[in-house]
């Protein structure tokens, strides 16, 4: 799903390394020429580190993201929805698989990544720390969270790291199904009975703040951000992506006669920019730091899944300690 727009980043300037200037210049020239970096290419240490952090968080977001929607997997109404929701959640697990592989090409084993997820060392997209209370919530998630993720993923697919771009290419194709499925489900509810309509309206109202949080707070202009942009690790500012999302989807929400819980939301025709009430960024950071309504459950469930599968894996584990990683 979920590019989890916002990269949780606690790196400090002190962590940054000095790389061989000649190699660095060559590396940057290659990126400037629009060429991709492959796993065996020389790369700055910060580049590797940032990419691992970003791709890993993206992968975590996919498998944790399978949980809020999975909440309704046994209750989807009718064959069409039941099959589609199963296929969608399955795709999200598949995205996790592809992304962990992409991150592994940078040298961090999947085992370590999952351990870092479970211990809380590594983060995932904040939106999945909110509950899917009704069937309406799954519809809103599938449509709008996936839409936001697509904005993020399409942007990232133009990045410089080959394996990540290739994974995103495949992921974006599948996301277009998710988006259609989500929109379809929302439209059926919004154009249905008063009960159905209320269900989707309430869900939308609930999910709007997390959706506005999705791309993260406005970027601080820093040498660090500037470098990530130059290296095509980060390709657009959080605010730019948020604007893009609002521009594409607010009209589609409004055309269904649904309302959004922000009286200030409007497009300024002169600037072409959307104006909105600044989301509560304190809450955003509180949730990132573990205080969201579902943080504890999400990690507990993931941990239980690993725990329940442990005997299966241990049974088939080879004694050889040789670690192999995906090639590209």
């Amino acid at each position: 799903m979920y590019g989890g727009g916002y990269i949780y980043d606690k790196s400090s300037p002190a962590e940054q390394h000095q790389d061989d200037p000649a190699k660095l210049a060559e590396f940057e020239a290659k990126i400037d020429r629009g060429e991709k970096i492959e796993p065996h290419d020389w790369m700055p240490r910060d580049y590797r580190k940032q990419l691992i952090r970003m791709i890993e968080q993206h992968a975590h977001s996919e498998i944790i993201g399978a949980l809020p929607e999975g909440t309704w997997i046994t209750r989807a109404p009718g064959f069409r929805r039941k099959l589609a929701l199963m296929a969608k959640v399955q795709d999200e697990v598949g995205h996790g698989q592809l992304l962990y592989n992409a991150a592994e090409t940078l040298g961090k084993p999947r085992e370590e990544m999952i351990n870092d997820l479970l211990s809380g060392k590594s983060k995932y997209s904040n939106v999945f720390n909110y509950p899917a209370k009704t069937w309406g919530d799954t519809a809103v998630i599938a449509w709008l969270i996936d839409a936001a993720a697509i904005v993020n993923q399409v942007t990232n697919s133009k990045g410089s790291y080959g394996p990540y771009c290739r994974a995103l290419e495949r992921i974006c194709q599948e996301e277009s199904f998710h988006l259609k499925y989500g929109h379809d489900t929302v439209v059926y509810l919004a154009t249905g009975t008063p009960t159905q309509r209320a269900m989707v309206q309430e869900a939308l109202t609930r999910w709007w703040p997390p959706i506005m949080h999705f791309f993260g707070p406005p970027d601080k202009v820093s040498v660090h951000t500037e470098k990530l942009m130059r290296w095509k690790v980060k390709l657009a500012s959080n605010d730019d992506m948020r604007q893009q999302f609002l521009n594409m989807y607010v009209p589609k929400i409004w055309e269904l006669g649904l309302t959004l819980p922000d009286p200030n939301l409007r497009k300024n025709d002169e600037t072409g920019q959307w104006e909105y009430t600044e989301p509560d960024w304190d809450e955003f950071f509180r949730v990132i730091n573990g205080e969201g309504p579902c943080n504890a459950e999400r990690l507990a469930v993931r941990n239980a899944a690993e725990e329940n599968g442990r005997w299966v894996r241990r049974a088939l584990m080879k004694p050889v300690g040789q670690y192999t990683q995906p090639l590209c």
């Binding site: 592989n101 592994e104 084993p109 999947r110 085992e111 999952i114 351990n115 479970l118 211990s119 507990a300 941990n303 239980a304 690993e306 725990e307 442990r310 894996r313 241990r314 088939l316 584990m317 080879k318 050889v320 300690g321 040789q322 670690y323 192999t324 990683q325 995906p326 090639l327």
Partner: peptide
């Protein structure tokens, strides 16, 4: 309160292309 038993190295097996 669950224990947190780390995933062992290689627990997710080898990779195949």
């Amino acid at each position: 309160e669950q224990g947190l038993e780390p995933i062992q190295p290689n627990e997710y097996f080898e990779t195949y292309e």
